[in-house]
Design a protein around this nucleic acid. Structure first.
Lengths: 149, 149
DNA sequence: GCCGCTACTGCAATATCTTGCAATAACATC
DNA sequence: GATGTTATTGCAAGATATTGCAGTAGCGGC
């Protein structure tokens, strides 16, 4: 699977990328990166802390959050806010996409490319606004919950 | 101004509405309601706490947040999340609207009715998703910042 | 006014996330 | 390996927001 391969190669290069930037490679950062390399899609800051603690109970939350900040500067994760306002990190450097969140069932999905394009175009046209999709979470009700109403 | 009049009438009726629901009318709730009655548009939970503390330094944050929860149940405020994920309350019972937030200058605006309609229609069509506009904050870059780039 | 019921508050604890500071450790150089 | 520089960590404090519990107070009824 090309996607998995691509991500795997990317994570193994992380130590070198850190050093190239004059940043240090530490055991704590390694742990965060290992958890992320096993993570698909999205993860909340709090969940990442939990996962790291599962590996090493001495994990300090502030260190994890700081590592996430650095990884975001390197473009390896991208932060946004979930429907409840909490930090949510999109793992990997895939194309920007927004999310739909159903307040009824709690499910979430990526906004389809077609819809995203239309939304972006609409706001550019009506408001001259350039949308940052990675920070867009649209709350509402999904088809299934609508049907069940 | 019709809008101010309308809001003013609404706030003065709040104590009665509370009682009609079997809820108590307390000095703390009065303080919150007074601050809200002087508030136009939106306010964060934290700022409301600050405003109440300006009136009475003994104000307890948890009481303020709980009052906001009750007011939301009564439909007098509506909560959403700002671009940074924090709680933001829309004051008054006006029509649902979403927001645009410029990450560059920090400015925010309501999404125009025309754009909102298009976005809602798009997501209904492509994903069968029913949007809850009050919970939509689109992050990006405004026209002015785009022009200045 | 008094009494009783119970909604509500303050307090304390907690979760999530941020940040300053002093000590530690990564790592380049010799 | 030793040394020096400084990025990074752990700790403590802080901001925002939530929640359980015991004591308080709003308020209806008498």
């Amino acid at each position: 699977m090309a996607t998995s391969t691509d991500l795997r190669v990317s994570w193994s290069a992380v130590p070198a990328r850190f050093r190239a930037r004059g940043l240090r490679w530490t055991p704590q950062r390694r742990a965060v990166v290992e958890v992320l390399s096993e993570t698909d899609g999205h993860i909340t800051g709090a969940e990442l802390v939990e996962r790291c603690r599962a590996r090493d109970a001495q994990t300090i939350p502030s260190t994890v959050y700081r590592t996430l900040d650095v990884l975001e500067e390197l473009g390896l994760v991208r932060h946004g806010h979930g429907a409840d306002g909490r930090e949510e990190y999109h793992v990997g450097a895939g194309p920007e996409h927004g999310h739909l969140y159903c307040a009824t069932c709690g499910g979430s999905w990526e906004i389809s490319d077609a819809a995203a394009e239309r939304i972006v175009a609409t706001l550019a046209e009506t408001d001259g606004f350039e949308v940052d999709l990675s920070h867009v979470t649209v709350v509402g009700r999904c088809r299934a919950c609508d049907a069940g109403a």
